[in-house]
Design a binder for these strands. Sequence first.
DNA 1: GAGACATCGGGACAATTGTCCTTTCTTAAA
DNA 2: TTTAAGAAAGGACAATTGTCCCGATGTCTC
Lengths: 190, 190
Amino acid sequence: MIRINKKFLALIESLLENPAYPNVITEHIFEAGDVILKQNSKVNNVYIVKEGITKCYLTEDTGKDFVQEFFGPGEIFGEVEIFSEAYSFCSIEATTDGSLFKISHTDFAELLDKNKVLNWLMLKSLASKVKYKAIRHSFNQSHNTETNLKRLESEDQNIYNLIPKKDLANYLGVTERNLNRAINSLKESS
Amino acid sequence: MIRINKKFLALIESLLENPAYPNVITEHIFEAGDVILKQNSKVNNVYIVKEGITKCYLTEDTGKDFVQEFFGPGEIFGEVEIFSEAYSFCSIEATTDGSLFKISHTDFAELLDKNKVLNWLMLKSLASKVKYKAIRHSFNQSHNTETNLKRLESEDQNIYNLIPKKDLANYLGVTERNLNRAINSLKESS
DNA sequence: GAGACATCGGGACAATTGTCCTTTCTTAAA
DNA sequence: TTTAAGAAAGGACAATTGTCCCGATGTCTC
């Protein structure tokens, strides 16, 4: 639900201070609601969240938004487009205030080539995304909204304070109406 | 639906003949129905499909199977477990007869470290998986079975000959009964 | 406080999907 | 050809989810 990657963040921060790579990594702040990356736009940079939470979502032809994941500190986005050489397939929007690091694709590709630690952490990060996406999709398809919500609650007790209801519904792939029903029946059963 | 990766296959085949890496890559045949990898088991190798089709699926606590993807020539599996250092999170079963290449995790990690072309193709392969999983999950959640099936048909006209109905249903995350309904209403509307 | 306005939750009904079980189709053997 | 057995398809009903809309609640301005 809210992903973090402390090792990745630590490495990026250490590279920031490394004189061997001047002006490669820049830091930027964002405010809740800011659109950081737009679906179907050209991506020229990768971004690593330093502080705060961003929402990664995909807008369908039906107008519905589907939330892929919430990215917290250390999570990277805009990297898939380096390897798939295509326009962005999702949008990124700030859920809270925060800050991030930005690296151009060309610089990042060079870093990947030269820095074995980064290279390995990148492989780990991508593999982790593959894995949690697989598990999540499978679970969601195999259970009803109430069970899916229960799983989220057990992952993070604080979701109702951190994530707006609308986004929760879009993460579960259901309507707000249906999410409300699930919340009520969980309340009753406790 | 049925993934292939020609560049990856070509590279593995060239490594197979490379005298610098003796006995690292072995070739094995499989028959339809063979279980190649079992969920929750320790994984010590990566596998690259040479010929044929395998099914990657996850079994839920409810007993339902959910098919992640069908892997054709050049697709690799068992690699995520190198990076996540965990037991396999899905099973792999042969859908058709075929063959595959096998490389131990330690050998493969060494290859990733030494061979830049392999390293890059690995990053591309993982990124591609992240991308198509994201797009697929979003689409499936946002549309009904009929629309999801129509999308599959447009991807691959031949699905009904290649994939058993039961697997198609498990790929869409619905019951066979419901898949039949969707097939019928698509027939009527054409 | 009154009125205008937006937001949120939930009722009522419709559409979709799941479950269970019967019917139909296939295949093989006599 | 007939018959039996197993597999596949579909009917009937139940559960889940979506859509539409109304009323309650909160907020802002005057």
